[in-house]
Simulated scan of single mutants.
Amino acid sequence: MEGTRIVVVDDDREICELLDEYLSKSGYQVATVCDGRALLAHIEQHGYPDLVLLDVMLPGDDGFTLCQKIRRSSDVPIIMLTAVSDETDQIIGLEIGADDYIAKPFSPRQLMARIKALLRRAQVSEDKSADPLPKRIAFGDWRLDTLSHRMTHQQSGEEHELSGSDFALLMLFLSRANEVLDRDTISFATRGREALPFERGIDVQLSRLRQRLGDSAKYPNYIKTLRGNGYLLSVPVSFEY
């Protein structure tokens, strides 16, 4: 935890002060900024932090726009801060590359649990990167470059660059092809925590990955749903080192 940097992006001064105090007491290095321009200036000066807490409603560029800008160059974990009653905000945030979301008003302890979970996931990914990782993985009609996180259709040439959580999800399926994965397993791989009851995030992420693969939930060629059990990648996988 020592040296772990978190940037809070929120135009509510009181929330920034409370989070700064709470997270600092927990041992994190915290910076607070009030809008997108200040966030991008902070990143340019200090580099990307270890995690970003990003409010949706901001002056100038909103949280969705900033999330997209960050995702063009970084896989830094992003937690979106959303309106309590607006599930649309939560779904949009996940669709454009956020790793998790928490609704306002939130418990600081709940937020801390989400932060620790995502940082654990990032640490596990970093530790695994020390192991020999295949340079490319072929599955069905697709080929994944594990260094650039870019997957390419071998016939059409269509390409998709994956966010950190999407890459983690696809790697989970590829490393455990033809094995049934339940929702908790998927949530641990992408968010570092168990799935919450009635959580939509996993469904959104699976839907997004299926869409990029040209797959469908009703007639899947890649990811099959086994009702009551989980999900399964049903195509051959080969690794190139």
Rank of each mutant, 00 (worst) to 15 (best):
K128N: 14
R227C: 02
A113F: 09
G230T: 11
Q90L: 01
E17M: 10
G27M: 01
D11Y: 05
Q29A: 04
R72I: 02
G201R: 05
C34I: 05
I102M: 07
I102S: 07
I202P: 15
I70T: 08
V180K: 05
T225M: 01
M151T: 07
H160C: 01
S129C: 07
Y231Q: 05
I15W: 01
A41W: 00
K224V: 14
Q123N: 14
H42V: 00
E126I: 06
T32H: 04
G63H: 01
D10C: 08
L51M: 09
H46Q: 14
S238L: 02
P197H: 03
H160W: 04
V235E: 10
K128W: 06
R208I: 12
L196Q: 14
L94K: 10
D203T: 15
Y219W: 02
E159S: 09
I70L: 12
E95T: 13
I137Y: 12
C34Y: 01
D141I: 04
K135Y: 04
T88L: 05
L94Y: 13
V8A: 06
A83T: 15
L119G: 09
G36F: 00
S85I: 05
P197Y: 02
V84Y: 05
T152F: 02
L162A: 03
P220F: 01
M171H: 05
N229Y: 07
D11A: 04
I102W: 06
S26N: 14
D62E: 09
F167E: 10
G93S: 14
R72H: 11
R150T: 15
V84K: 11
A195S: 14
L144N: 08
V33W: 00
S24C: 08
V30C: 07
A117W: 08
R200D: 11
E126W: 03
D131L: 10
Q211G: 13
T88V: 12
R37Q: 14
P105I: 01
E87M: 10
K128P: 00
E87Y: 05
R191F: 03
G36W: 00
L111A: 08
R143G: 04
E21P: 00
N229K: 12
S26I: 00
Y22D: 14
R150L: 02
G47Y: 06
L58S: 00
I70D: 03
I43F: 10
T190N: 04
I137C: 12
L40H: 11
L144C: 06
E159T: 15
G214Y: 11
S238W: 02
R191V: 07
E159A: 04
E161G: 02
S85F: 03
D100P: 13
N221C: 08
G36A: 01
G93T: 11
Y101K: 02
H149E: 12
I78Y: 00
L19H: 12
Q29Y: 02
Y22C: 02
Q205R: 15
R120P: 10
L233F: 14
H149F: 13
D35K: 00
L232D: 09
E159G: 01
F173K: 06
A98F: 05
R72K: 12
I78H: 00
L196W: 05
Q211F: 07
I202C: 13
E2G: 03
E161V: 11
A31P: 04
C67P: 15
K69Q: 14
G140D: 10
E126Q: 14
Q155I: 13
A138W: 04
S187M: 08
R227N: 10
A138K: 13
P134A: 00
T185M: 06
L19K: 09
E199Y: 06
I186N: 05
L119Q: 12
P108I: 03
M171C: 07
K218A: 13
L232I: 15
